[in-house]
């Protein structure tokens, strides 16, 4: 078997069964015809156009697309940080308006509160919900232990590495028991090794916690490795291109990165994202040859 003969559509029976179970579960987030237009001076830019999709309970959905496809805008609309220009986002069937603790978010940059210790960062959401200090502390310590950071409970964020900061950011959102966790390229600022470790960590947390995850990324490997389904967006305007069901069984491990199914899925994503019209004859950014010969002549 190799990537040429194996299609990403060929799902092993256990994956088929798993996806069928997944789609039979409750719909958590339902995006119905959501559009987003930005006014830029005189003209208008359409970032998202009549986008519709659903996520089910405990689903891991990745959203991927070329830059400018409105991935981050989608995350911000789902979080309620930005209003949609049209359409509705429903959480458990009810339309959402504005941000709320039932939709946790992990941002691309580090957004831990620098003046609070790690423990108090994790306690933050609970304290905002007027849960007593002792109870909030008990829960925070439990979550810190889950991600192996109990020793750093009293440290300040600036004393942590990038990966540790994002682990704290994840449990800071999860401690609120949100219905969905929105992650906007949370690992893109990390180096490659740390990113892989964090992906494994995230799957580990997700295995232990009943949570639906919508994960925005531009990294193809990341999307295939993490997701049950991958939502591929087109750019200018951001439209649904394809919903890909990842044919990899769970639990996932690093060995699967070398599997033919992984390669086939990634090849499909590559074709969708990079094989589009942007690299045709009217490529707006043609490759410029490097002037290596010039320096040779000088020497």
């Amino acid at each position: 078997m190799n990537a040429d003969t194996l299609s990403y559509l060929d799902q092993p029976p256990e994956v088929q069964a798993r996806l069928a179970r997944l789609k039979a579960r409750n719909v958590i987030v339902s995006v119905e015809g959501v559009s987003k237009r930005f006014a830029t001076g005189q003209s208008e830019v359409t970032a998202l156009e009549s986008l519709s999709f659903r996520t089910h309970q405990r689903e891991f959905l990745c959203v991927i697309g070329p830059s400018g496809c409105g991935k981050s805008t989608l995350a911000r609309i789902l979080a309620g940080l930005e209003p949609a220009s049209g359409g509705v986002v429903r959480l458990d069937g009810k339309p959402v308006q504005g941000p709320g603790r039932e939709r946790g978010m992990v941002f691309q940059g580090y957004t831990l509160f620098p003046w609070l210790s790690v423990r108090r960062n994790v306690m933050f959401g609970l304290r905002m919900a007027n849960i007593s200090k002792a109870e909030a502390q008990r829960q925070a310590d439990e979550w810190l232990a889950l991600v192996g950071l109990e020793k750093f409970a009293d440290a300040y964020p600036h004393q942590l590495s990038g990966g540790m900061k994002q682990r704290v950011a994840i449990i800071r959102a999860l401690v609120n028991r949100p219905r969905v966790l929105l992650m906007d390229e949370p690992f893109s600022a990390l180096d490659a090794q740390t990113r892989q470790r964090m992906q494994a960590y995230l799957l580990e947390i997700w295995r232990k916690v009943d949570i639906t995850i919508i994960f925005i990324t531009h990294d193809l490997d990341e999307a295939v490795f993490l997701a049950d389904r991958i939502l591929v967006l087109d750019a200018h305007p951001g439209r649904l291109r394809e919903m890909i069901e990842v044919p990899l069984p769970r639990p996932r491990d690093a060995a699967q990165l070398a599997s033919p199914a992984f390669a086939a899925t990634k090849a499909r994503l590559e074709a969708l994202i990079h094989g589009g019209e942007a690299h045709g004859e009217d490529d707006p950014y043609p490759a410029v040859p490097l002037l290596t010969s010039v320096s040779n002549e000088v020497e």
Binding site: A79, P99, G104, M105, F107, T111, F124, A129, A169, N176
Partner: peptide
């Protein structure tokens, strides 16, 4: 403002944004 947005998604509202996020962050 990223901290304010993070606090919003954690359920912070109104004046508590001021007392729990903005003031401590610029203190």
């Amino acid at each position: 403002f990223a901290l304010v947005e993070a606090a919003l998604t954690l359920g912070t509202r109104n004046l508590r944004l001021l007392t729990s996020v903005i003031i401590p962050s610029v203190l």
